[in-house]
């Protein structure tokens, strides 16, 4: 898949990575195998700089967290990765396979999804009046091929595909404990199940990178513990990498292998949970009550 060339930022759309990016990638040494990395990413809204020279990396197969106070630019980073925003400058690369590097800057959102980047939203965004099964089936959209002809004439290939995807969706729902809910309107589900359904929908597209935006928001302690298990399960069963935005420090420290800390749009720290816990900059950014969460 060739990335769409952007007239304004030819260097982002070009197949060859800019020199700076190559250095960043090289800095990880020979065994480095990132699935996603950004280089000097910058994003402005009017006068406000939401992201400022953010260079971070998600290792293939890892669970990586992105934390920071409110308004630090975490969701903006997600939106740049998924193509909802076009970054002002800098670059983001996605590597679905080790040797295949795709620039994400300015890629349209559905293209990013088709490449294998699934996501959930901070404020759950399900297709509320559609059934749970349909939500997941729409998640399969990128895997399906049927077009207008197939829809109108229901040829064998189309019906076979429908059946396969319905079974797949059902299997996904079963795996995440939603099989009793297949015919319920998604909007009628309780909060925790809506969160799970949103993850299931994202998984239906068969992503290799899953972006979770505050999945623990609104969950109680028990549910958060279950969520931690769920995230580990997903990583193992679906063989994918997870990038997680989260405020709940217990969850972050519990599941993630690497943590990146954003503050006022800048990446102020990056490392293992142990390193982050001891990092004075991070503690300063989280001064006050939140500082205890790190301990």
């Amino acid at each position: 898949m060739t990335p769409r060339a952007e007239s304004k930022h030819p260097e982002i759309g070009a197949g060859a990575a800019p020199a700076g990016a190559a250095e960043t990638a090289g800095a990880f040494g020979l065994d480095a195998d990132p699935i996603l990395f950004s280089d000097s990413l910058r994003m402005d809204f009017g006068g406000l700089t939401a992201l400022d020279q953010v260079s971070l990396t998600v290792e293939r197969g890892s669970i990586t967290a992105l934390i920071g106070p409110n308004g630090a630019g975490k969701t903006t980073f997600f939106n740049c990765v998924t193509g909802i925003y076009k970054p002002g400058s800098g670059s983001i690369f996605f590597l679905p396979e080790k040797e295949k590097r795709i620039s994400l800057g300015g890629l349209r959102p559905h293209k990013a999804a088709q490449l294998g980047i699934g996501r959930t939203f901070q404020n759950i965004r399900l297709f509320n009046t559609l059934t749970v099964l349909e939500n997941v089936l729409i998640g399969c959209h990128a895997r399906m091929r049927a077009g207008l002809w197939g829809a109108l004439f229901r040829d064998r290939k189309t019906m076979e595909e429908e059946r396969r995807m319905t079974d797949l969706s059902y299997a996904i729902l079963e795996r995440y404990g939603l099989q009793a809910r297949v015919n319920d309107p998604a909007g009628s589900l309780p909060y925790g199940e809506q969160r799970r359904l949103e993850i299931a929908r994202a998984l239906a597209s068969g992503p290799s990178l899953l972006l979770l935006d505050e999945p623990a928001a609104g969950l109680n302690n028990q549910e958060t513990l279950e969520l931690a298990d769920l995230i580990r399960h997903i990583r193992r069963d679906e063989k994918l990498s997870v990038l997680l935005i989260e405020h709940d420090m217990s969850l972050v420290m519990n599941v993630s292998e690497r943590i990146n800390v954003l503050d006022y749009g800048r990446l102020i720290a990056s490392g293992t949970p142990e390193e982050i816990r001891k990092n004075p900059d991070v503690v300063r950014a989280y001064l006050g009550e939140d500082a205890d969460d790190l301990g």
Binding site: Q114, F121, R125, I138, A142, T158, A204, S205
Partner: peptide, 24 residues
């Protein structure tokens, strides 16, 4: 159908439908 579900997704949430790969 796949196409119709994409329309429904578009109606329900323009942003979320793109996030699952529907070409808005």
């Amino acid at each position: 159908s796949r196409l119709g579900r994409a329309w429904l997704a578009l109606r329900e949430d323009e942003t979320a439908c793109q996030a699952v790969g529907v070409n808005r």
